Amino acid sequence: MLGRTANALFWMFRYLERAENTARLLDAGLRMALTRDLVTAEEEWRSVIATAGLRRNYEARHGSYTGMQAWNFMLREKDNPQSVLAMFGQVRDNARQSRNAVSGELWEAINDSWIQIKDILAKPVPEQRVGEVVAMIRQAGTLAHGAIGGSMLRDQGYHFARAGTFIERADSTARILDIKYYLLLPSLSYVGSSLDAGQWDTVLRSVSGDRAYRWLNAGQIDAKGIVEFLVLDGRFPRSLAYCHSALRDQLASLARIHGREGQSDALMRDADTRLADVTIDMVFEKGLHEFILEFISTNAAIAQAISDDYRFLA
């Protein structure tokens, strides 16, 4: 497979994952903002924008955090290269570049979703349609993942696509956890308060983990338990442990197909060993922020090594 095609498959699913994650953040923010007064609702939207890593870009263009401005900025604003509209355009462009390597079902799922999303985001989204738009974006991801799972050969193209998914998913979960401590929780005096519990609920909703966590923990919102769930619980498909386990499997499959291992495999083994030996007490003893920064750095190094090993730009 040409490096350009592998690169397109890898990034197609990275951008798809980013678009889905943005939709989840918007859904969580909307739920929280609807239960707040006007001033507090603006703080909720400030947190959502910060969690998405868009605060500087947003504040360069807007002076307030009204819901209408915030969700349209994240969904469709032309000056935001990380908007859902821009990211899904990248999904389709990468799908087109790798057209000969994807199944007809996957291409149709992505192309049809792109047409629908482009159409609904052609104009500013009013409050009464935000839920519909978020649902459409999440459905687009579900359709694409279903199509690749049910129609593509388990060849190198499939494994590059899945590797991109888990690289991006791990990065997103890690950043959401880090933002919780440094932006969503402005003061230690909030720890244990209703605001603190509400923010942790937002974190769980941002990764679609609220129902699974409550089922496992009898509905109790506990910061330490949530961090353990999102970092170490290998049963939850968006936890750091699950994502790296799945990524390891994709890289092992690629190594078998190519008859050799690369730097990405060595980095993956090291990361896997470190994460397997960690307990939640060790995470908090080290410092959650420090742990997350190290994880994000390692995750990025693995992504770069995949690109180098398989000559994505060749």
Rank of each mutant, 00 (worst) to 15 (best):
A276Y: 05
D112E: 15
E228D: 14
F13S: 00
L34M: 09
L106R: 00
L216F: 03
T5Y: 04
D93Y: 11
G219S: 11
I176L: 04
S64L: 11
A170Q: 01
V227R: 01
N100D: 15
E42P: 09
R311H: 14
G219A: 12
L143H: 02
G146E: 05
I176D: 03
I176G: 04
V227F: 00
R256S: 15
L204W: 07
F312A: 02
L121H: 09
E17P: 05
R92N: 06
H62W: 09
A266I: 15
R92Y: 13
L106Y: 00
A86C: 11
H145F: 14
I226L: 00
L288P: 15
A50E: 10
D119H: 15
A255R: 00
N299F: 03
L54R: 06
A170I: 09
D265Q: 15
L143W: 10
P81S: 01
M74T: 07
R269E: 12
D249L: 14
S83M: 03
Q139C: 02
I292H: 07
P186Y: 12
V283H: 09
T173A: 02
M282S: 14
A8C: 01
D249R: 13
F236D: 03
E168D: 06
G225R: 12
L247E: 07
A161E: 11
A161N: 06
D270F: 03
G141V: 02
M268I: 04
I137D: 06
A241T: 02
A60N: 15
M68R: 14
F166M: 13
R138H: 06
S239K: 03
G150Y: 06
L153C: 09
S187M: 03
L275K: 08
S47Y: 11
A70I: 04
G63I: 08
G63F: 08
I280T: 12
H258V: 10
